[in-house]
Amino acid sequence: MISRRALELATAVLTGSFGVAVVVSSLDNGIGWSSAGVDAGTFPFLTGVIIVVGSLYNLVRGVLPAATLANVPIAITPIELRRLAGLFVPAAIFIAAIPLAGMYLASALYVFAVLAIPRHQSVPRALAMAAATALALYVVFERIFQVSLPHGVLAAALGF
């Protein structure tokens, strides 16, 4: 169970750390004026500062007991969380697998896992659909559009 307060705080921390990353990264490019004019880091630096300050404000508002939105006790129930994870986790693994296994293998595995593991489809049908997806991607992109999708480290090791 996740409360609205926890969500508010987590979002504020997330946006705040993004802001800090922007500030730190833009310092490398230099902020302020140089002989060439405004340095490249100035604009990102300012946006980063705005993000950090705004996130701090949101964080404080989330902590304060007076905040009305934060008093909503339950924003996400465990069942909803499980459903969300059911979509998000396989998708994240799929994306992470693309550089390693390549687009075709990764998408075939993804389709197979999503269809066969929750038993939406029988294993042979899921296998057939996975193969069809990979084949369709190959024909459409590699053959028709002549766009090379990522082949992955595995394919490179096998000599494709």
């Binding site: 802001g19 922007v22 990102p44 946006t47 705005i50 993000i51 949101n58």
Partner: peptide, 15 residues
């Protein structure tokens, strides 16, 4: 303030 933060994140990503 949330809109401002979201806008600034958009600017940062665009940069």
């Amino acid at each position: 303030i949330k809109t401002v933060v979201a806008l600034a994140i958009g600017f940062a990503i665009a940069a």
